[in-house]
Design a protein around this nucleic acid. Structure first.
Lengths: 149, 149
DNA sequence: TAAACACCCTGAAGTGGCTTTAGGGTCAAG
DNA sequence: CTTGACCCTAAAGCCACTTCAGGGTGTTTA
């Protein structure tokens, strides 16, 4: 299977697949000796499928590598696997809480503009001009609604 | 006021302030002619305070610039301002929904590991190995619980 | 047979919002 | 006169890709 076909099958771009190979998230592809095209076998497909599945669940590459390592340690218990999932789940839950707090604050801010008119009197701008309060300062690590890790 | 004092006052790092100046999010500081140290007046402080307030609400630099521009157009109505806030609020709400969907999926996945034992039989790994289903594919644009935009 | 078009390749740079690193200069206190 | 807190710059690193520039390959159709 060539890279374009694989990309379609797994709903990602060819660039992403080449990138994963480059950083070692998937093993090197086999190359066609004539034209240097990448070719993929069932093993590759399964591995990439696993990775994409994890990414769809918003796991980081680091977390995915931990899962892959844990999986390959035959006979080991799945405690490590559970731990990775639990930790990730906590990241997601925490991020949801943060965003919900943010949502509240934005609703409150939005209501400040009661009487649309000249912007100097806009309650929103007045509010944003005022000193930062401690509630809002609480959300330090958020770069634009992103980054649970 | 020197940069360190300003950073403390606004609860951010000196590096962040220098970075904002570099990318033009705040106007250039006044320099001490002797030692080239940055100095800030009330205008600078208010502007940076505004920017930090917006960032605490997870707005992007682009959104902040839109607000700053709208604010400076004297006499214009605050429709633009409202629009920026409304759009941003929608980003946040949408991201919350996505993360909640993710949270559900992760809970379901976590439950697959009912009987902790040898990892080959771990339901989690089995699930992640299986083909990606269309529900999960729905969350395409998420890079690790981040990026509402 | 040649041109069009879809597909493949590489390496480097760009994205956002900073943070970190490396290598310095300045200034007040002891 | 040295210690330590503060200041400066330019460049690289972070994450997970995406985009760009420039080129090769392979099939199909005029």
């Amino acid at each position: 299977m060539k890279i374009g076909e694989l990309a379609k099958k797994l709903n990602c771009t060819v660039e992403t697949i080449r990138y994963y190979e480059k950083i070692g998230l998937i093993p090197p592809s086999v190359r066609d000796q004539n034209n240097n095209y990448r070719h993929y076998n069932q093993n590759h497909i399964e591995r990439l499928s696993f990775v994409r599945h994890c990414r769809a669940l918003a796991m980081s590459h680091e977390e995915i590598l931990e899962l892959l390592t844990a999986r390959e340690q035959d006979g080991a218990s799945c405690e490590k696997i559970d731990l990775v999932i639990d930790n990730h789940l906590k990241h997601v839950s925490d991020r949801i809480s943060e965003l919900q707090q943010l949502e509240k604050q934005l609703h409150t801010l939005r209501k400040q503009c009661k009487t649309p008119g000249a912007n100097q009197e806009c309650g929103i701008i007045q509010e944003l001009d005022s000193p930062i309060d401690s509630n809002i300062q609480g959300l330090k690590n958020s770069n634009h609604v992103s980054g649970s890790h």
